[in-house]
Design a protein around this nucleic acid. Structure first.
Length: 217
DNA sequence: GGGCTGATTTGCT
DNA sequence: GCAAATCAGCCCG
């Protein structure tokens, strides 16, 4: 187990990343999101807020990327991705799972960075509860809560109602991780994306080297 | 630890 | 009608 203490909500929210951050290139953003913290505050239920340090991301770089949802053009499903940067693109797939992305690139251009894994720093018990693992407390490692894009959305309560929410709050935030919770200095591993059939040769997946919460090596 | 498979819904062709 | 930016459970070793 890690020695990280749980964070407090006000403490975490002191370093919100401004929306201008999301105007950079998608791959730059995907890489720079590593080590930052994702915070989710359910509407009307602050007691079930959760947060985790982002340790794995993938870039989906626009309509020319065959693995990007925008490849098929603008549709109702992917509409948010075409809008301004700094919003969350949340979508449902495989009949079971939600995924969360940060919309990147200029308004009118569709690209996003998928958040694939986080390391919990707030609300671990809430995550365990949402994942249905509360009965197995102590038997399931914390890493099983959020080491995959579908898992982290379930653990943090992210669903379609978050689609289009700004990443600058009030329900979703990406923040600079408070000093007391930061990861030790890390190297970034760059490799190919997971779970796709087209565009699989592009090295647009990034993760924190050696971090145990990464979905796979 | 690794490989295979069924679950289950939405959106697009 | 089918593929999908996945996961859990099961088998095997």
């Amino acid at each position: 187990m890690s020695s990280l203490q749980e964070a407090s909500l006000p403490g975490i929210l002191s370093g919100v990343i401004p929306s201008a951050f999301y105007e950079q290139s998608t791959l730059e953003i995907a890489r720079q999101l590593l080590g930052k913290t994702l915070v989710v505050i359910p509407e009307g239920d602050e007691s079930r807020a959760t947060a985790g340090i982002i340790v794995e991301t993938e870039g989906y770089v626009g309509p020319e990327d065959p693995a990007c949802h925008a490849y098929v053009g603008r549709t109702r499903r992917n509409d948010i991705m075409w809008g301004p940067p700094g919003l969350a693109y949340v979508y449902f797939t495989y009949g079971n799972h939600w995924m969360i992305n940060a919309v990147t690139g200029p308004d009118g251009y569709a690209a996003a960075a998928l958040i694939r894994a986080v390391q919990p720093v707030l609300g671990v018990e809430t995550m365990r509860d949402r994942r249905g693992l509360h009965l197995l407390k102590g038997k399931v490692e914390d890493r099983q809560l959020t080491n995959g894009p579908g898992k982290l959305c379930q653990a943090m309560g992210i669903n379609g109602s978050y689609n289009g929410q700004p990443l600058t709050g009030p329900r979703l935030y990406i923040v600079e991780t408070p000093l007391s919770l930061q990861l030790p200095p890390f190297e970034v591993v760059e490799t190919t994306r997971i779970g796709i059939s087209r565009g699989k040769d592009f090295p647009w997946r990034y993760y924190v080297k050696g971090n145990r919460y990464v979905s796979r090596l």
